[in-house]
Structures are given as structure tokens and as C-alpha cells.
């Protein structure tokens, strides 16, 4: 056993394993500090919660070569301008409802979840909701009674009634409006948004 060269010895590889793991962990921690800063709501890639007071466009960025959300003029959700605190509370209530109703066990959000029902990332911008002026009302109606208002596009798959209160349904819509403004680096690829009335 003495003729094992140093680079094949147990102690060399023990040290290597430790150093490699520690090194990679340090890089991960450094990147995490930067990423957590960037994905804090209101920073560059993740919108502030009061974005639900604004109109959200989805436009091609020719330089980046993919689409990105663009924040437009005032367009208060359910006709009410909210303070930053009120907006955060509403989005948070929506997020909490999405978790408590286990939406991610049928849907995906940012592409993660189950594949039984459509992705919710761009639900706010989806053409399924007829047009910009009626969508918030339609979305609330749908959430309150998804069985009757099923949107299966010919499929018999229906969302079950999860007994949301009207407040919860509105909060979910607020959460989804906020979600649609996250810069997802072009995911889902090739997304075709609802006709954006008055857009260029």
C-alpha cells in the first residue's frame, strides 16, 4: 500500500473533498447574497407590490431577444389605488391563499408545481380572460365557482371548488397580477399575451 502515489492517496482525496465542498459552498453563498438582493420585491427583477396599481404590459425586448414585463400607467386593481402597505398585504393574502388551497399541486407557478392545470405565472396576461377591462371580474367569478365557470377549452378537466371567500379570490387575483410582472428571463418562451388595448 506504500506505493500509492500521493494524488491517489486517501488523505489527499479527503482534503480535496473538503476543499471542493467548502469552495463551492462559498461561491453559492456569495451568489446567494447577490441574488437575494436582486429578487427582493421592488428591486430590478421582482416588482414592488404596489405594481398592482399599474398597468402591466408584456413586450419584446429586442436587445435581450425575449419578452419582458413593462410597468405602465395607473390601472388600479378593482378600481382602488392601494398604499404600498395595503398592496403588500393584499398580495401576501393572495400568496397565502395559493399555498393554503394547494394550487401548486395542479398548476405550476414560474414553471414549478404540477402539470395538471395551466401555468399561473402569466395568468393575468393570458388571453383566456377575454379582454383587459373584464378580466379581474371574470377571474374572481371563476375562482368563486370554478365548476360552473370552467375554462377547459374543450377539455373536461375542471378546477374543483376550493371555497374561496370573495376577499381571498380578489387577493389571489392581486397576487397573480403581481406575479405577471416578475422578469422571468423570457419564460414561458413565445408567450402570446392578451390583446393589450391601446398598446403600440
Amino acid at each position: 500500500m506504500s506505493n500509492v502515489p500521493w494524488w491517489a492517496s486517501e488523505s489527499f482525496w479527503r482534503k480535496t473533498a473538503i476543499w471542493v465542498t467548502a469552495g463551492m459552498t462559498l461561491v453559492l453563498i456569495a451568489l446567494t447574497f447577490d441574488t437575494v438582493k436582486v429578487i427582493t420585491a421592488g428591486h430590478s427583477r421582482v416588482p414592488a407590490y404596489e405594481v398592482i396599481n399599474k398597468r402591466i404590459y408584456y413586450r419584446m425586448n429586442t436587445k435581450r431577444k425575449f419578452q419582458e414585463p413593462v410597468i405602465g400607467e395607473d390601472a388600479p386593481l378593482f378600481g382602488k389605488m392601494l398604499s404600498p402597505e395595503e398592496a403588500e398585504a393584499m398580495v401576501s393574502h393572495g400568496k397565502m391563499t395559493v399555498q393554503a388551497k394547494n394550487c401548486g399541486s395542479c398548476h405550476t407557478l414560474l414553471g414549478n408545481g404540477a402539470y395538471y392545470a395551466p401555468d399561473l405565472t402569466k395568468a393575468w396576461l393570458d388571453p383566456a380572460w377575454a379582454g383587459e377591462s373584464v378580466r379581474e371580474t371574470l377571474m374572481v367569478q371563476f375562482l368563486l365557482d370554478p365548476t360552473t365557470n370552467a375554462r377547459g377549452f374543450g377539455s373536461t378537466r375542471r378546477m374543483p371548488n376550493l371555497h374561496l371567500t370573495e376577499e381571498e379570490a380578489r387577493a389571489v387575483v392581486a397576487f397573480l397580477k403581481w406575479t405577471s410582472a416578475i422578469d422571468t428571463t423570457g419564460f414561458p418562451r413565445n408567450f402570446t399575451p392578451v390583446a393589450q388595448e391601446g398598446d403600440l
Binding site: W13, T25, G111
Partner: peptide, 25 residues
Amino acid sequence: YIEVALMLGSGILGLGHHYFWIGTP
């Protein structure tokens, strides 16, 4: 030890392939 070095050497930052589309830089 070799396996740990190779696996964690590529696997820890392999985490990056989940950070493509979730709003991360």
C-alpha cells in the same frame, strides 16, 4: 472521498439550473 468531491463539486452549483426562470439574475 473522490465521489463526494466530484458530486458536490458539480452538484452544489448545479442548483443554478433551477434558477433560470424564477426571477433570478
